[in-house]
Amino acid sequence: MWINNPNIVTDTVKIAVEATKKQDTSWIMHHVLDARELDFSPFGVIHLPQLHLFGIDISITKHVVFMWLALVILVVTFIFVARSYKKSLIPRGVTNLTEVLIVFVRDEIARPTIGKGYERFLPYLLTMFFFILTCNFLGLIPYGSTATSNIAVTATLAIISFIVIQVGGMMKNGVFGYFKGLVPHGIPMWLLPIMIPVELLGLFTKPFALAIRLFANMTAGHIVIMALLGLIFILHTYVVVPVSISFALFIFLLEILVALLQAYIFTMLSGLFIGMAVHQEH
């Protein structure tokens, strides 16, 4: 076994580290990672302002800009949509599109996962769904950047979900009742020392899974597309161009699906966890 021969492993790792140092892979990461400027090359680069507050770096980054872009798009769209409902109850144009999604979130996510009293969480779920969806799609347009491929963003969204889940559960069952309800009924006393840590851990794994799932899905697609296109430059041949392009196109189409799917999954799981916290008897 290779593990028995540390020299081989050491050599391999040494070579890998050397290779990492030598080969410049930043061109892939450049597209995925956050940045302090908006890169519109070859047209130019916009440097974003650097801000500091109480010693914390709160500079505006590329992902922040794209989150704000999503915010502006959503606000403008929904002002328009809300106004169109005032004019007539019959949807038309953009209203049709948003209505499909709103009704989907309401009837397919909020109602079945939360059940009774879902109306209170509907604004949160709708906002989460549309925000993630818009961020996901902004990463698919040229010069765009996926804010949801930033672990800080997804983790923050997951923490917000976590807070909503816990507060929702506590508001329904009371603070004490909520924590009491975490442990299933009819558990023998001697199991409690195991069950309590497990259930407490379960509280935190849920948002952690939410954050990692969204982040990994949104990052992976871009890296795969970059790697496929990179084949052309690595292999130094035009022969691979059709293969690269067609595979990258396929992945891109897949990413459209993933963008929708991840927004749905994040919202659906948030709803599911809220439902579990609110209706603990199930």
Binding site: D34, I56, D57, I58, A152, V153, T156
Partner: peptide
């Protein structure tokens, strides 16, 4: 990498 600024702006 987690950038605290991004967390703040996301919230």
């Amino acid at each position: 990498d987690v950038n605290p600024g991004v967390i703040l702006w996301t919230v």
